[in-house]
Design a protein around this nucleic acid. Structure first.
Length: 271
DNA sequence: AATCGCGCCTGACGGC
DNA sequence: TGCCGTCAGGCGCGAT
């Protein structure tokens, strides 16, 4: 499932193929993604030159001409650059065909993803405008987290996964960062001291950073844009390891459901 | 305002 | 072997 490191890996993989390229046409085979793919995409994009490939949270932004494409990979989305003549598979929903004969191809079996187009600054788009700071930026730190947590009643894990607090920390990395910081995922966010928030912020950056360096986490069907699997899976300490021994104390990792999401932690190491 | 549950969707997996 | 129920989950949205 694409989380921030996977989206960043995809961005780095596709950017060299897209930058400075002109769009020849857009082919939409399935319009029913999370939101319908707008006709505007096919109308406005052809002829435009792609000037930047950016990421904000888990959104990819293709700056092109007088507008931007906003792409979200949802649960099962992936992007490949292929020769435009390559026969599309059943879940290859959108092609952005370039003048050089290649196409950026979105595949998304579960169709939780999105492809949108806006003429305005995409950062002011409804979906992006109220996102919290990037977790790898300086704005995200222990003091910031402590300030956000002070007046809230939620547990730390859902706080960490709230995109309005910090953008792009999903379930896998929330579990891993809390383990690294030794914080129990069910602990009330308002009852964690600044020193521990400092540790947590460092853990979030470290976990995301090393996952990006390794090319994303391989879980289920994630692959990088060149098709190679990410290499981070071996580095997961708790996620998906319910019942297995904790790498620190060897006691069994516990798995619970929080807000309909699998939560993994070591009851001995995390308080 | 904060928080919680829902629903979108399909592939993988396990049980019978 | 094959069928079918269950689970997985990002995240916006509506309800509380």
């Amino acid at each position: 499932m694409p989380e921030l490191p996977e989206v960043e890996t995809a961005r780095r993989g596709i950017a060299p193929h897209l930058l400075a390229q002109r769009v020849r046409e857009v082919v939409v085979r399935e319009r029913r993604l999370r939101w319908p793919v707008p006709l505007l995409l096919e109308q406005a994009l052809p002829g435009a030159r792609i000037t930047a490939v950016e990421r904000r949270a888990k959104y990819l932004l293709l700056r092109a001409g007088y507008g931007s494409v906003i792409i979200h990979l949802g649960m099962s989305g992936s992007l490949r650059v292929v020769p435009a003549s390559t026969t599309p598979g059943p879940h290859d929903h959108v092609d952005i065909v370039l003048v050089d004969g290649n196409a950026l191809r979105l595949r998304d079996p579960r169709r939780f993803g999105a492809v949108l187009f806006t003429h305005n600054n995409p950062l002011t788009h409804r979906l992006l405008a109220s996102l919290g700071p990037e977790p790898l930026s300086d704005a995200f730190n222990g003091a910031y987290l402590r300030g956000q947590a002070r007046a809230r009643r939620v547990a730390i894990k859902p706080l960490l996964m709230n995109s309005h607090i910090v953008a792009g920390v999903g379930n896998i990395y929330a579990n891993e960062a809390l383990f690294c910081a030794g914080i129990h995922p069910h602990r009330r966010a308002s009852r964690i001291a600044l020193a521990r928030y400092n540790r947590l912020a460092v853990a979030v950056k470290q976990v995301l950073g090393s996952a990006i360096a390794a090319g994303g986490t391989t879980l289920r069907d994630f692959t990088a844009s060149d098709g190679s699997p990410g290499l981070f899976r071996v580095c997961l300490h708790v996620y998906g390891r319910g019942g297995a021994p904790c790498p620190c104390c060897a006691q069994p990792i516990r798995r619970t459901l929080t807000r309909q999401r699998a939560t993994y932690y070591c009851p001995h190491c995390q308080r």
